[in-house]
Computed example of a mutant assay.
Amino acid sequence: MSFTHVRRAAGPIAAAATVAAGTLLMASPASAASNTVEFQGACQARAILTQHMSQPLGMSITAPDTAKVGEEFSYTLQPTVSSLPDKESIATTTDIQRLKIDWEIPENTEFVGATVVAGTSKGLVGVAPSVIRVNEAGEPDAAGTILRLSGDNETVGNGPKSSLNTPGGIAVEKTKTDMDGNPTADGSTKFQLPAVEVTVKALAEGVVTPKVRVSGDAANYNSETNYDTFLARAFALGSQQNAPTFCTPKDGKRPANDVPVNAGGQALATITIGAGGPVDPVDPVDPVDPGAGSVDLGSLGSLFQS
């Protein structure tokens, strides 16, 4: 039994404009650029018969081109439109449960906050999407290095609320409709995970490179720490079947651990950090006395003395 979770390219998302109150410096929204990175994901579905698949995936990002040291700036991430097929081999799909996406908090930054952008998802049911900060074990952690999009951290692995065979978290019911609600020719169901706006502060000159989770074991094939995981469900052989699925940004159907990640696991954007920071205010110049009718030529002359 095989399951697919195809992410096809969508138009770049618009930059979110919300700025936290009290920020000293923020990147100019006019400098933001949008980009969609398309890549292949090596996915394993643990079903009655284990499936090894290569799937087209994608991630969109809107981020400023530049920022300054000490400046807070925001960038927005969103997986591209996804599809639940009607049938796979001998199985008839029913739904997807426990959808989860992980991103790394970029190096050379101080994390400020992250939020789900309202109105950017479609076709989702179950637990409302939220973004939290977690550690390598998938546990909520204020010092964690990973941002997780999920439904109350209900996943198929790498977390305290994980399960390989029970419904939960962000879910998708099969409707056989496209993003506009029209019937699809092949019976597939299209859906969209929400965008996440991330705000960080630049720490030093250099670059900031947002990316999906690929550090440590997360880049390895069939790891519960993979950035993209979910529970696919279908009816086959007379009963409901579960297929927890794990995807990593690598080429091929069953890549070895030493195979490098492809473009999907590299920088989604490169933000150049230049020198800068808050500038001390300049003392105001005393106003000219409107009653003064003469100029001290001696003072002016001192400006030109060697």
Rank of each mutant, 00 (worst) to 15 (best):
residue 101 I to N: 11
residue 102 D to E: 15
residue 103 W to K: 12
residue 105 I to A: 01
residue 105 I to L: 04
residue 106 P to H: 01
residue 107 E to N: 09
residue 107 E to P: 00
residue 108 N to W: 00
residue 108 N to K: 04
residue 108 N to M: 01
residue 109 T to H: 02
residue 109 T to W: 02
residue 110 E to L: 12
residue 110 E to I: 08
residue 114 A to V: 07
residue 114 A to F: 10
residue 114 A to G: 09
residue 116 V to A: 08
residue 118 A to I: 11
residue 123 G to V: 05
residue 123 G to K: 10
residue 123 G to S: 03
residue 124 L to A: 08
residue 126 G to P: 00
residue 127 V to D: 12
residue 128 A to M: 13
residue 128 A to W: 14
residue 129 P to R: 03
residue 130 S to G: 15
residue 130 S to V: 12
residue 131 V to M: 01
residue 132 I to A: 08
residue 134 V to S: 01
residue 134 V to M: 00
residue 137 A to R: 08
residue 138 G to R: 09
residue 139 E to T: 13
residue 139 E to P: 03
residue 139 E to H: 04
residue 140 P to F: 00
residue 140 P to E: 01
residue 141 D to R: 05
residue 141 D to L: 04
residue 142 A to S: 11
residue 147 L to W: 02
residue 147 L to D: 01
residue 147 L to E: 05
residue 149 L to M: 13
residue 152 D to Q: 13
residue 152 D to Y: 06
residue 153 N to A: 13
residue 154 E to S: 06
residue 155 T to L: 06
residue 155 T to S: 12
residue 158 N to M: 02
residue 159 G to E: 07
residue 159 G to I: 04
residue 160 P to A: 12
residue 160 P to D: 13
residue 160 P to V: 05
residue 161 K to D: 06
residue 161 K to T: 12
residue 162 S to R: 08
residue 162 S to G: 07
residue 163 S to L: 01
residue 163 S to N: 10
residue 166 T to H: 10
residue 167 P to V: 03
residue 167 P to S: 10
residue 169 G to L: 11
residue 169 G to I: 06
residue 171 A to F: 04
residue 171 A to G: 06
residue 171 A to K: 15
residue 172 V to K: 13
residue 173 E to V: 11
residue 175 T to Y: 09
residue 175 T to P: 14
residue 177 T to L: 15
residue 177 T to I: 09
residue 178 D to N: 07
residue 178 D to G: 01
residue 179 M to C: 05
residue 180 D to N: 15
residue 180 D to K: 15
residue 181 G to V: 09
residue 182 N to F: 11
residue 182 N to K: 14
residue 182 N to M: 14
residue 182 N to Y: 08
residue 183 P to V: 04
residue 183 P to W: 04
residue 184 T to Q: 07
residue 184 T to Y: 11
residue 185 A to M: 07
residue 186 D to A: 02
residue 186 D to N: 13
residue 188 S to T: 13
residue 189 T to Q: 09
residue 189 T to N: 10
residue 192 Q to T: 05
residue 193 L to Y: 03
residue 193 L to F: 01
residue 194 P to K: 04
residue 195 A to Y: 05
residue 198 V to N: 10
residue 198 V to Q: 07
residue 198 V to M: 04
residue 199 T to L: 06
residue 199 T to F: 06
residue 201 K to S: 02
residue 201 K to P: 00
residue 202 A to D: 03
residue 203 L to E: 09
residue 203 L to I: 14
residue 204 A to C: 05
residue 204 A to Y: 03
residue 204 A to L: 03
residue 205 E to W: 00
residue 205 E to L: 02
residue 206 G to Y: 11
residue 208 V to E: 00
residue 212 V to S: 02
residue 212 V to F: 04
residue 212 V to D: 14
residue 214 V to N: 03
residue 214 V to I: 15
residue 216 G to D: 07
residue 216 G to S: 09
residue 218 A to W: 11
residue 219 A to Q: 15
residue 221 Y to E: 05
residue 222 N to K: 13
residue 222 N to I: 08
residue 225 T to L: 09
residue 225 T to D: 10
residue 225 T to C: 10
residue 226 N to E: 11
residue 226 N to D: 14
residue 226 N to Q: 13
residue 227 Y to F: 15
residue 228 D to A: 14
residue 230 F to G: 12
residue 231 L to R: 11
residue 232 A to T: 12
residue 233 R to L: 12
residue 234 A to F: 14
